[in-house]
Design a protein around this nucleic acid. Sequence first.
DNA 1: TCAAAAGTGTTATTAGTACACCCATGT
DNA 2: ACATGGGTGTACTAATAACACTTTTGA
Lengths: 228, 228
Amino acid sequence: MITETVRVAVDMAVFTVRDNRLWILMIRRGKTPYEGMLALPGGFLEPGEDLDQAAYRELTEETSVLPEHMHLEQFHSYGSPGRDPRGRVVAVAYFALIPTPPTTEAGGDAAEVEWTPVDDLLRADADIAFDHRRIVADAVERVQAKLEHTTVATRFCGEIFTISQLRQVYEAVWDRSLDPANFYRKVTKIADFVVSTGQTTSIGGGRPAGLYRAGDARTLEPPMYRPR
Amino acid sequence: MITETVRVAVDMAVFTVRDNRLWILMIRRGKTPYEGMLALPGGFLEPGEDLDQAAYRELTEETSVLPEHMHLEQFHSYGSPGRDPRGRVVAVAYFALIPTPPTTEAGGDAAEVEWTPVDDLLRADADIAFDHRRIVADAVERVQAKLEHTTVATRFCGEIFTISQLRQVYEAVWDRSLDPANFYRKVTKIADFVVSTGQTTSIGGGRPAGLYRAGDARTLEPPMYRPR
DNA sequence: TCAAAAGTGTTATTAGTACACCCATGT
DNA sequence: ACATGGGTGTACTAATAACACTTTTGA
């Protein structure tokens, strides 16, 4: 049988929500190929390492976020023969959801890290390396679907948040505006999605909002269907 | 940097529906490791080959089914360091949905091919090689979810089918019984899910059933939510 | 007092569920 | 005639959407 050297890489699509928009962490490439273009952070699988471990390692090389405050999930693998001009690379792609505001750590390449609004990035004019435009688009779709029947939206918020902030997460990811009243009722009625802390906050005018933290539920019962 | 030889394999979870049950195609292993145990069909990625191409090649080595009558989709990759005792193997797993009754082709290993009901296979007593029990379980979950908002259930039927046969597919995959009357109305109301051929059939007693073929829709609007 | 955001009430519409009942065939 | 599955009617229930309205703060 003919053999071919294949390398396995892990590519990360790291998302956060800020200013009512969905942002993704990209790297400005400093060397060929695709020098000067935007690419997803990532790296090669190391000996003895699980895929999930590699993804977590790559994530912590770029950001400082505790495991319990984020969501990390594999979503697709990419292996077209020509996807990397340097050789045969199969990329296992992950997405991560982290709270806002994220702190970008000085990990050697820190100066090249760029947070970018996803909608801007996916418009045709952005220069994106490799097949990473497709990977980003796939990741966004997966995250949108994930918010419908899981509780991962809370991973975009900090430990404590208001229902309004949670709604802004849904609005940013789905790119749709939602009725605040109906959203409030639905979210607070779902068992163990959010739990009240009893405290209130008064940032940004208006009646103070109740403060909540993420509950123990991992799936939404019933789901939050996005409007069509 | 330390390098390690990694091989990329494609593993296939091939499903069909027969006798109101979901079946999966497994291989009885003829050599070590895991000799005599059941494993998913699969093989290594070949030079210059895309992942989807490799999956399709593996599928046609085991079954004879035309691309337009099946559904083939990647769902997860598995890369634990110890998952294959022969060395480092990252497996990209696909599921395929093919019509019933499937014809198993004589592909050299034909004698070792075994169609197995999924529920039997996942009961604890079955001997399954590698991490393939987990892969099968993941595949089943993905297929169940897929039937909710896509039209792939029609890939289990032949070119022409009755609404009742389509319902039996849903019942087998979801392992739940559905109300025939409500199912009929819902399915026929969704635009381009199924289209009537104008013909009827009279297999198995009772009033003859209308015959339908799959429509052009790929997503279900509205979705078919499985009962909780 | 006014603007603004939080949260509650109310109603109309729609989707889902249960099940009675008629239809069209083979035996 | 009767059993069998195909297909229609209909009433009940639950989820959704729209929006008026009250509450509680800062300015």
